[in-house]
Design a protein around this nucleic acid. Structure first.
Lengths: 224, 224
DNA sequence: GTCTATAGGTGGATAGAC
DNA sequence: GTCTATCCACCTATAGAC
C-alpha cells in the first residue's frame, strides 16, 4: 500500500483542532465543533486520540518537536560558525525566529499554531502548561547555558529574569495580540514577519546586554 | 446607617471571584464554585451583578481603574520633576511598577489580580480582551506620546513594536508564570517584587534605547 | 436580600449497529 | 473506521417562596 493519504480523518482532525484552538482557545473549542470543522464524526476524536486531552497533546507535539529541533539546530550553527565566541543576535534569532516564522508559513495550520503556543505560556490550565514545559525544557537549558557564556557579567539570578522577560516578549508577539490589529492605526503590517523578527531580536539583544542591575540596597540612590 | 460592612455579600463575591479567576482562569471558574468560595448562594451573583459577565467586568473595573490612575499620576510626576526632559526609567517604572506591585500587596485579592491581568492580554475570549482594551487605551496613548519624545530616533512603526514587546514582558511577568516556580531551581525569589521591578525596568530601558533597527533591504548583510 | 428548585443548554465520553 | 443515539455531569440563569 502507498503512504497514508494526507487528508485522512486523523490529519483532518489535527488541522481542524489547530484552527479552532487558535481562534477560540482550547477550552472553548468543543469536540462537536472540531469534528464538524473536520467533516468527521463526533466519536472520531475518541477513536483516534482517546480523549480531548489526547488530541491537545497531539496538536502540540506535532508542531513543537520540529520547532524545537530547528531552534537547537540553529543554535548549533551559531556555535560552529563562531568558534568559542557566539554572536548574541545569532543566538536570539535561533530562539525566536522559528517561532515567529510560524505566523507566516503558508502551510495550513502553521500560522494558527503560533497563536496557540503564544497563549499557552499564560494558560491557567495545568495540562496545557505541563505540555509546553516538557517540550521547552531542553531548549531552555541549552540556550541559558550559551547565554551565560556570552553574558558573563550577569549573575544566574539576573540571567534567569532576563530570559523570563524575553520569553514574555516572544510569546506575546507570537500570540498575535489583538492590540496589533486594533491599535496599530495603519502604522504597522503584522504580516511582515521578517521585519518584526529583526526588530524583536534587535530589541532583545540590547536588553540582554544591559549592565547588571544594581542591587536595591535601600540607599535611596537617584537615577539619571 | 453606617457605611456598608466591608464583608457584605457583594464584596465577598468580588474577592472570591478574583481568587478563583487567578487560580483556574475565568472560563473555568463556575458561578457555583465562586458562590461556594464566598459563602453565598448560587443566585447571588445574578442578583448583585446581573450575570457572570457583569461579575467579570466588576472585577476588572475594581482593580484597573485605580491601577491606571496611579500609572498616569506617576507619569505626570516624571514630567514635572524633569521639565521637558523626562527620564526613560522613570517613565517605564510608572507603567510597570504599579502592575507588579499588585503581586506583593497584602490586601487579599491584589496578588491574584496581577495574574488575571497578565493573562488577560493573551485571552482569546473577546469580552475579556475588550475590557482590557478599553481600560488600557488612555494609558497606552499617553505613554506612547511621552516615549516618542524621549526616543525621537524611533519611527512610529518601531516605537509601536517596542511598546508591544514591552507589554509582553510585563504581562508575562505579572502573570507569575509557572516557569518561575518550576524552573527557578532556588535561584530566584519571586516574592521579591522590588528587585524584580528594578531588573525589568533596567532590561526594558536598554531595549527601548537600542539603535533603530536597520530595514531588511535584501542586501544579505552580515551581522557582527 | 437570600434561598431552593429547576429549566434549558452544552460539554466529553461511550455503547453498539453497520 | 465510521456512524447514531444516548448517558451523565456540569453550566448559567431564573422563578418564586421566605
Amino acid at each position: 500500500m502507498p503512504v497514508a493519504s494526507p487528508t485522512d480523518t486523523k490529519s483532518e482532525l489535527l488541522e481542524a483542532a489547530e484552527r479552532l484552538f487558535a481562534e477560540h482557545g482550547i477550552a472553548r473549542s468543543s469536540l462537536r465543533a472540531i469534528t464538524r470543522e473536520a467533516g468527521a464524526n463526533v466519536a472520531s476524536v475518541n477513536y483516534h486520540f482517546g480523549s480531548k486531552e489526547g488530541l491537545v497533546k497531539a496538536v502540540f507535539a506535532h508542531r513543537l518537536e520540529p520547532l524545537n529541533r530547528e531552534r537547537l539546530a540553529l543554535l548549533d550553527r551559531c556555535l560552529e560558525s563562531a568558534k568559542g565566541d557566539p554572536d548574541l543576535k545569532c543566538v536570539l534569532r535561533a530562539l525566536i525566529g522559528p517561532a515567529l516564522q510560524m505566523m507566516r508559513d503558508r502551510e495550513p495550520g502553521h500560522k494558527c499554531f503560533a497563536q496557540i503556543m503564544g497563549r499557552a505560556f499564560a494558560d491557567p490550565e495545568e495540562r496545557v502548561r505541563s505540555i509546553l514545559l516538557d517540550e521547552f525544557r531542553e531548549v531552555r537549558e541549552r540556550f541559558t547555558a550559551v547565554l551565560a557564556v556570552i553574558l558573563p557579567q550577569l549573575s544566574p539570578e539576573e540571567l534567569f529574569w532576563r530570559f523570563h522577560f524575553m520569553i514574555g516578549a516572544m510569546a506575546h508577539t507570537a500570540a498575535g495580540s489583538f492590540f496589533v490589529t486594533r491599535h496599530s492605526a495603519g502604522v504597522v503590517d503584522p504580516s511582515e514577519v521578517e521585519g518584526m523578527t529583526l526588530k524583536l531580536v534587535n530589541f532583545l539583544a540590547a536588553a540582554m546586554s544591559a549592565p547588571a542591575t544594581r542591587s536595591p540596597r535601600k540607599t535611596k540612590k537617584r537615577k539619571k
